[in-house]
């Protein structure tokens, strides 16, 4: 039966409205759990707070397990889900730039907007940087375009490209997550506590 909107169980006009509602809920949860503090995000890299790692890893695993159970029970057709297209080198270079910005600024784009909403000055600077980056990207687009459009691999997933069994992959992935959580906890106990 699912996904709901592509199969017209919910009219397509509701798409943006649902997106706005989910977006507000997401922003609220980010802010409520303290993600609008750049110290919380930077904590992952300095080893005193692994909340970000735990939250996003848990979210990914819970949703992937839930989706595959729903697919198994016939509530959802997993092949109909949208897979973001892969432009290999664009993704690698963009990922590196974003990672550097992540460490340096202590925000991801989503949390930076949350922090702007509660009036953090560093977030204002950060969002200014994002806008500057967008401007530079747009101006240099002609130079960057071959990378931006090139190395297109289609809407692939790890499971397609390496021909893995998705169920085993999910199982191993969740073991890795639990090990990562345990290791993160051990690291956090050894590192000097930072209060913020």
């Amino acid at each position: 039966m699912g996904p709901l909107i592509p199969n017209h169980l919910i009219p397509i006009e509701w798409n943006s409205i649902i997106a706005i509602i989910i977006g507000i809920a997401f922003g609220f949860v980010l802010e409520a759990s303290g993600f609008s503090s750049s110290r919380k995000l930077a904590g992952v890299f300095y080893g005193y707070d692994f909340a970000v790692l735990k939250v996003f890893f848990t979210a990914a695993i819970v949703s992937v397990i839930g989706l595959y159970y729903m697919d198994y029970l016939g509530y959802l057709d997993i092949t109909q889900l949208y897979v973001h297209p892969t432009y290999l080198w664009a993704a690698i270079i963009g990922g590196v730039i974003m990672g550097v910005g992540f460490v340096a600024g202590g925000f991801c784009p989503g949390t930076s907007l949350c922090a702007v909403a509660i009036g953090k000055l560093d977030a204002w600077v950060y969002v200014g940087g994002i806008l500057l980056g967008i401007f530079m990207f747009s101006e240099l687009f002609n130079v960057i375009e071959p990378i931006y459009d090139g190395y297109f691999l289609g809407n692939i997933t790890l499971i397609d490209s390496f021909d893995w069994n998705p169920y085993w992959f999910i199982f191993i992935f969740s073991i890795i997550a639990i090990v990562a959580f345990a290791v993160a906890d051990m690291v956090r106990k050894k590192v000097k506590k930072v209060f913020y």
Partner: peptide, 19 residues
Amino acid sequence: RYKILALILVILAGGLVLL
């Protein structure tokens, strides 16, 4: 509590493999 949660996660993921 965390151990229980981790266990639930492993059981659910293992269930997908064993089904």
